[in-house]
Simulated assay, not measured.
Amino acid sequence: MLFGTTQPESGDNKWRSQLDKFVKENQRDLAALFWGLWLENGNSQGTIGIDLQPTPHFVYCPKEAIEKLNDRVENRLQEILGIVENHKPEMEVVMIGIGKGEIKLIQFAPEPAPPDCFEQVGKDVDGLLELLEQRLSEEIDF
């Protein structure tokens, strides 16, 4: 007997699985971008986000904005806030996916670590942003 059978994917949730697939296929480049932006700004701009509307692009999600949203949704984002606050950028990538009025936590520990990914990729932040936004546009049907 099967438990927890999956429901057919609705159009509203399709973006989540597409984003998961994109992250899995682009882990090294996302880790490199994450580290490059971390070197440039540290935590001063907030958490990196992937905003899917109107076309997929990268944004910063300031901590204050996430806290305000958490208040509006009765503290249902408390766990996300804790992860954002306590992540170790030299070891793991933390981003926020934004789509259809919802957010999704993106968190992974790449092999190799983000600093090494950045070194291996050999592109600057602008080149990585351009490359990844192009791939996002091709791979995510929003």
Rank of each mutant, 00 (worst) to 15 (best):
M1G: 12
G4M: 11
G4D: 05
T5Q: 14
T6W: 11
Q7C: 05
Q7M: 09
P8T: 13
P8H: 11
E9A: 08
E9V: 14
S10E: 08
G11R: 06
D12H: 11
D12N: 11
N13E: 07
W15E: 06
W15R: 05
W15G: 04
Q18D: 14
K21R: 13
K24V: 02
N26M: 06
Q27P: 05
Q27F: 03
D29S: 06
L30S: 05
L30N: 10
L33T: 14
L33W: 14
L33I: 12
F34E: 05
F34D: 12
F34P: 06
F34L: 08
L37M: 13
L37E: 10
W38S: 10
L39F: 06
L39D: 09
E40I: 00
N41I: 09
G42A: 03
G42W: 03
G42F: 11
G42T: 12
N43M: 10
N43V: 08
N43T: 14
N43H: 10
Q45K: 15
Q45S: 09
G46I: 03
G46C: 03
T47H: 04
I48G: 07
I48T: 10
G49E: 08
I50N: 07
I50Y: 02
D51G: 01
L52K: 00
Q53N: 10
T55A: 04
T55P: 01
P56C: 09
P56I: 02
P56N: 08
P56A: 14
F58Q: 04
V59G: 01
V59T: 15
C61A: 00
C61Q: 00
K63I: 01
K63A: 00
E64C: 01
A65Y: 01
I66A: 00
I66S: 00
N70K: 00
N70T: 02
D71P: 06
D71N: 12
R72S: 04
N75G: 07
N75P: 01
N75D: 02
R76Y: 13
L77C: 07
L77R: 02
L77F: 14
L77P: 06
E79R: 08
G82T: 04
G82P: 01
G82H: 11
N86V: 03
K88Q: 11
P89E: 04
E90V: 11
E90D: 11
E90M: 01
E92T: 11
V93A: 05
V93K: 11
V93R: 12
V94E: 02
M95F: 15
G97Y: 14
G101M: 06
E102P: 00
I103Q: 00
I103D: 00
K104W: 13
K104R: 15
L105M: 13
I106C: 12
Q107D: 07
F108C: 03
E111Y: 15
P112S: 06
P112C: 09
P112I: 08
A113L: 09
P115Y: 04
P115C: 04
P115V: 04
D116Y: 15
C117D: 05
C117V: 02
F118Y: 15
F118G: 05
E119F: 12
Q120L: 10
Q120P: 06
V121K: 08
G122T: 07
D124W: 08
D126W: 05
D126K: 04
L128P: 15
L128T: 04
L128C: 05
L129W: 13
L131C: 07
L132T: 11
L132E: 01
L132I: 05
L132M: 06
E133Q: 15
E133M: 12
R135G: 07
L136D: 09
E138Y: 00
I140N: 12
I140P: 10
